[in-house]
Write a protein that binds this DNA or RNA. Structure first.
Lengths: 228, 228
DNA sequence: CGGCTCCTTGAGGTTAATCAATCCTGGTGG
DNA sequence: CCACCAGGATTGATTAACCTCAAGGAGCCG
């Protein structure tokens, strides 16, 4: 458990003693896929660290539509805003069987007072979240093709690990089903499909691997599309 | 100047000595209306406290479109994210002649280390900003009528000061020109005008005072519209 | 009385959601 | 091994929301 904590952004850089105290209040929770962790407007009780699996944070609307704000990856925390507000601002649900650590709001606040370093880390984490929300706002004001282009560029950026010749076409792997991607881009599968099609016809990308591998053929064009 | 600092959310509750040190690094800047304070992607150099006047924070797009994120009011700070990032995530411009206090990033960071209370306040300020951005995201996913309804409800909430009989129609005053309001709602003046018209025809509101006074006739209907 | 700027109104076009099939693909059981 | 099934993905047709362009008002200040 200690290793899980140490590996996370929020708790990285803490000394062994602090980690020990954190471990004291962390409650491991195993959750199977497609299960709600908390819902928007629920009273604020706890936030979570995702140790393994996958979680999405999303807004749910009256009419049943959902819009994904963020895909949480192992090592990241979610729901931190309960530390400052009385209710969750959005909902969270597992996408795969997952291992979470649950931190009770009250207990964590107490620890926060005792551990200055934790406060600093928290500021950093919030700053990251703000940047993320900021990007979401910006994206939502852009047309769908621009959103998709940005997403592909960010994916390509992340998946730099594979050694590729510079300028050469690069293959990126979609980490989720297209259905999920559509929600993440604030659109519907039909529109996503048509947008992919436009990119293909414009020779900006090519698709392979049964649709889950995207080969970027024309980075400059993709960047241009991302601008608007 | 000290009073201006004390009155702000970010610096409230600090003792006289801390306020004095803050005053030491605060640089007053007078800016006339319609003037840029900083632009998106500018290198991060400083953030600001608005002491008097009005400022808007917005995103500017390639094609010249702008989307207002936030109207800053006296006592509020803006541009705080430079404390964590290298560039401004959005642009800011005065809407009226304004008095700003400018805080150099480097100097403020130094003070932050020396003043624990300042860090706590900063966390609170960031939490508020996150909530704001969160609302923006939520709003942008809603149709224009819902956005306008939410805006009117929040205005009515703010302008509670006037003593009104409960349940009676309440008059709210638009704090900006409709043009600005349209930008703030992420739409254009034409659409805003038509939406107001729909509300009027549905007997949800009535307009007076040359268009700057909105009388809410039917709160339940407005709340229903806000849901989507 | 111009000449502003803002607001409104009208007509037309564009984007993307919705509704409705159809097509794959992987998994299952015969 | 293969027919079948279920879910996701695609494609087509239609519709709705909203933007754009263009043309009037209406108030305001010189």
């Amino acid at each position: 458990m200690i290793d899980d904590l140490r590996g996370s952004a929020l708790f990285g850089g803490l000394d062994e003693e602090s980690l020990g105290r954190l471990a004291g209040i962390a409650r491991p929770v195993r959750v199977e896929a497609e299960t709600s962790v908390f819902s928007q407007h629920d009273p604020a009780a706890a936030f979570y660290l995702l140790a393994a699996g996958a979680v999405k944070v999303f807004k749910l609307f009256r009419d049943g539509r959902t819009a994904t704000l963020r895909h949480v990856r192992p090592g990241e925390t979610f729901g931190e805003s309960v530390l400052f507000h009385d209710a969750y601002p959005s909902s969270a649900e597992t996408m795969e069987d997952s291992l979470l650590y649950r931190f009770d709001t009250r207990e964590f606040r107490a620890l926060l007072l005792a551990e200055p370093r934790l406060g600093v880390n928290l500021l950093g984490a919030m700053a990251r979240l703000m940047l993320l929300l900021n990007n979401r706002v910006e994206e939502l004001l852009l047309p769908v093709p621009a959103r998709l282009a940005r997403y592909l560029l960010s994916l390509a950026d992340e998946q730099l690990d594979a050694p590729v010749a510079p300028g050469a076409p690069r293959v990126v792997k979609l980490p989720t089903a297209k259905k999920e991607l559509a929600a993440r881009l604030g659109t519907v599968p039909e529109t996503l499909s048509r947008t992919f099609d436009r990119f293909k016809r414009a020779k900006v990308i090519r698709m392979s691997g049964g649709g889950e591998l995207i080969e970027v053929l024309d980075f400059p064009a993709l960047r241009r599309l991302a601008q608007e």
